[in-house]
Write a protein that binds this DNA or RNA. Structure first.
Lengths: 347, 347
DNA sequence: ATCCTCACTTGGAACGATCCAGAGCGCACG
DNA sequence: CGTGCGCTCTGGATCGTTCCAAGTGAGGAT
């Protein structure tokens, strides 16, 4: 009497299965997969057919064990802060996954503890390294004082940074970054071309080197046209509330007709101030942001913003990783990419 | 003559190293790590000390090979659509990484081809399964017609869905979802309490079951108070432009004093219309969104939005995964969570 | 004293791939 | 005709862990 029975899960075919079917040795199948040039043409075809017929795919764990590699790239993720407009990570992660796949790697996400403090992440890096769970890391915050870069270097762990080793001349690791000064310059020049003269800057506190870089772009654009900048700059925390306050103060004290902001978050703060005062963004006062977040894309009337070429960043990061993981390792120099300006209704 | 030489990379300690140091066999060390109860107390201490001294951590690849598991959970990521406000994925991913870590798993990201079509992802799933690169999947789009769920089921691949198997009664996989109707009901009831009567709905096209679920919450809240809904509903694409158009038409033809939207993206469209007509969100017309995206959090004057409990979703998803990967597998029933309403200036 | 049980520990085999050294063979060369 | 070389292909060892079956010794039951 037949009855429904659950099929036992069949183990996937192994190298040995393929070898038997093709009438060759295990090693030959292995070569067919990894070094096809070593095989005679007809043997290769025979093996490939056996592989196709059985639907063979090498077992990752076995390969990893033998080759002492995991073909995984570790990417730490920080909690996206609530109330900010920083959606850049999302786009970058996706690009990185795509680029990695083309290079034969997958991306493994991890986080330290829930605290979010940088030091707390080190044990997580350490565990992944020691258990050979990942081959390399991609790190994203490389300001000085961030222990990760130095720690990884000392550990001789392969890693590529998205972000310059700002003030660490001793850093010898590959990095990829976006020219923030160029971005701010583009935004500022764009506003000047639109006839603005009194253009204010709202950026981050002075200890943010990334912020100072962007700020340099604003002052460069102004100075190259002999436009005074005195009293037009403000440096605050990266929150909407700070942007709101700073812009209110600037409007009262310096009467700017336009704002260039170091982030979309700050730019949103400016929009808050404008809304409160009944000023129309883009018509009464121009505003530009940074990062081209979803916020910039959707807020009325559209926020002009500097867009980071995250797809290219990911490609360069993976290139650098491939160099590091190559034998012998090839340490690529830093790469600096140029952002673009997306003009919308706010300017 | 001494000269700087690069230290050869030292191999991490293995079980055998620990065993030798502790004066026990490999198996005993393995037990100390995986089944401490089996050891006598003093032996356990001795082994643990040796482990600590050497900084031993089990080699992932070897363990994976032997146990036929990878301790990785595969998460497909779709490209975040440009121009929408959907940042939910980001929060969910982070929560999932945290929950997974606590359960001893890591999250592996992958994507199909760059096309973004659902069918194109199947080979990616297949490869990961066949190469035993992941133990299970978390999938996020389970509407009917999406081939993933059925395919995974047929493949006997363990997976948990974030999202109900809407119209597939045959589905027998674990899922976790958020009660969209309850969310829309909360938003609508909130508006009614604020004195609104003519409350419009802007949702997705009728073939979106997720959208119809949320819509049901709106109409339920209205009907339970005998408020007429005729002419107050609109169903469009999930884009800012569609939300803008739909709200303009509704304002002209039905004079609503408030809008309940199926997404923050649509709500942003409403804000566009209000801005164009010189109406103030929250004062002249109320608006609520869905998802509590960064856009909702930052746009002036703040968009009231239904917030999905993604942290809890992640926890439940991991619980269900643990059940599936348990031996014997425990198939948990579906879990439906309730969202919360975050009230901001727009209502 | 012998046997049995129980708690604990052990060595060998296995997971499935790649590394390595060498075998077989055909061919050109001296 | 012997030798050596290059091209293919092979079998055994190995990566580091866990599974499995069996070994050891103390203590109680017979």
């Amino acid at each position: 009497m037949p009855h429904t029975m659950s099929r036992p899960p069949v183990n996937p075919p192994t190298l040995a299965d393929v070898a038997e079917r093709a009438g060759v040795s295990r090693q030959t199948v292995s070569n067919a997969v990894n070094n096809p040039d070593l095989l005679r043409e007809d043997t290769l075809r025979r093996v490939q057919q056996a592989i196709a017929e059985l639907g063979y795919l090498p077992n990752r764990a076995a390969r990893n064990l033998r080759t002492r590699a995991s073909h995984l790239i570790g990417l730490p993720i920080k909690a996206a802060e609530e109330g900010t407009a920083n959606a850049a990570m999302d786009r970058f992660v996706h690009s990185l996954v795509d680029s990695s796949r083309e290079a034969g790697y997958h991306v493994l996400l991890f986080s330290g503890t829930r605290t979010g403090k940088a030091e707390d992440e080190l044990p997580a890096y350490d565990d992944l390294l020691r258990s050979t769970a990942v081959d390399a890391f991609v790190v994203t915050d490389t300001y000085l004082g961030n222990p990760q870069a130095a720690w990884l270097h000392q550990r001789r762990a392969p890693f590529v940074a998205f972000g310059r080793p700002w003030n660490d001349d001793a850093a010898r690791h590959p990095w990829v970054d976006v020219d923030g000064a160029a971005g701010a310059d583009m935004a500022t020049s764009h506003l000047i071309e639109r006839g603005h003269h009194r253009i204010a800057w709202i950026g981050w506190r002075k200890d943010s080197l990334l912020g100072e870089d962007r700020r340099a772009g604003w002052s460069r654009a102004m100075r190259s046209r002999d436009i005074p900048t005195a009293g037009l700059a403000s440096r605050v925390e990266d929150t909407v509330a700070s942007g709101k306050e700073a812009s209110a103060v600037l409007l009262d004290e310096a009467q700017p007709s336009a704002f260039v902001c170091a982030s979309d978050t700050l730019a949103m703060g400016v929009l808050h101030t404008l809304a409160e005062r009944g000023l129309r963004a883009g018509q009464d006062v121009a505003v530009t942001g940074f990062d081209d977040s979803q916020v910039a894309q959707t807020v009325p009337p559209g926020l002009t913003s500097v867009r980071l070429p995250l797809e290219e960043v990911a490609i360069e990061v993976v290139k650098a990783l491939e160099g590091l993981l190559h034998t012998p390792p090839v340490v690529t120099p830093g790469v600096l990419l140029t952002p673009t300006l997306v003009v919308r209704g706010s300017s």
